[in-house]
């Protein structure tokens, strides 16, 4: 990819790979995150999600491939001014007050001192820590530390925010707050790279997503592209002969569970046709349940296909 093309994207990687000794953490990651979109990065434990984020923010050094963040090669010092990052392993100086931690990050990011106060107050208010700003971080709960980390990531109106499991220590209220913060970031034109294994969370807020397994992207696109336009339908039926069941596979990807048959990838307007065909084959239909395929269903199916 040309540098000019990369500049129009928040993140672009081409065959990005990372190996730790003999262990392959990431084997050829190719993906793009557009500006001002919320991008979900999904995968099972050990898929290479955190490794990918660490490569993007310069914490780890790639063993192969290339990557650009906000148009600059990954690790570029000046570009880091425009990044916000919440690590999976979040920890801040316990001996400092929350306000001081934010001040330190303002200073390190090279922000003019005149802007610090407003930025710090804004970040504290956004993450709900205004009343604890003067307390030492060592007295914070894990959830409060994660809120503080989110506040750190928001400083300086970054163009790209990378959040690695941002709600892992939060209660339901905190998770809701984080979703709202992500929506606000998107509204002001910030791209959000959300690394998460909370599928419902990703489903609610992401514009596009990539699914990784064994260090490689196995699916990517918009939510509807990943889930597929066609849904699934479950039918409870008796009296079908094995050859009749096989013939029904033309209606979709068939999962045969005895009395229950699940047809995946079946357009909803073909359901009456399917029922007629079952009856024509001698089957007795007791129930027909259209199923909306969730991201979890699709995620598990993708991983299963990958293993096969």
């Amino acid at each position: 990819m040309e540098a000019a093309d990369a500049a129009s994207l928040a993140v672009h990687t081409q065959d990005l790979a990372k190996r730790y000794g003999k262990t392959v953490a990431l084997s050829g990651l190719t993906m793009s995150v557009r500006r001002a979109e919320v991008f979900g990065f999904l995968g099972p434990n050990g898929a290479g999600k955190t490794t990918a984020v660490k490569l993007l923010v310069g914490l780890a050094i790639p063993t192969a491939g290339e990557g650009w963040v906000l148009g600059a090669p990954i690790g570029d010092l000046q570009t880091r001014r425009r990044l916000g990052y919440l690590p999976e392993l979040f920890r801040y100086q316990g001996w400092m007050k929350a306000r001081e931690v934010l001040g330190l990050h303002c200073e390190l990011s090279g922000m003019p001192r005149s802007e610090w106060k407003a930025e710090i107050e804004s970040a504290l208010k956004t993450v709900g820590l205004s009343d604890r700003a003067g307390d030492r971080v060592e007295g914070f709960s894990k959830g409060m530390q994660q809120r503080l980390g989110l506040g750190v990531a928001l400083l300086g109106r970054p163009e790209l925010v990378l959040l690695d499991e941002p709600t892992s220590a939060l209660d339901p209220v905190g998770r809701h707050d984080v979703r709202e913060i992500i929506r606000q970031l998107k509204a002001r034109g910030t791209a959000v790279f959300l690394n998460s294994h909370l599928l419902s969370e990703v489903e609610q807020i992401c514009d596009r997503l990539a699914v990784v397994d064994h260090g490689r992207v196995i699916a990517n696109g918009t939510m509807s592209q990943i889930l597929g336009r066609d849904g699934a339908v479950r039918v409870r039926v008796t009296g079908l002969q094995p050859n009749s069941r096989a013939a029904l596979q033309t209606y979709g990807n068939l999962e045969d569970e005895g009395e229950w048959l699940t047809f995946r990838g079946l357009a909803q307007d073909r359901v009456p046709e399917l029922v007629s065909e079952i009856v024509r084959q001698g089957g007795r239909v007791y129930a027909v349940e259209p199923r909306h395929e969730t991201l979890e269903d699709r995620f598990l199916q993708l991983l299963k296909e990958q293993d096969q």
């Binding site: 392993l89 979040f90 920890r91 390190l108 980390g149």
Partner: peptide, 14 residues
């Protein structure tokens, strides 16, 4: 080990 460096080093600091 604690993770403090993971928050600081992605800032524009060598």
């Amino acid at each position: 080990e604690s993770g403090i460096a993971l928050a600081i080093l992605p800032r524009p600091i060598r």
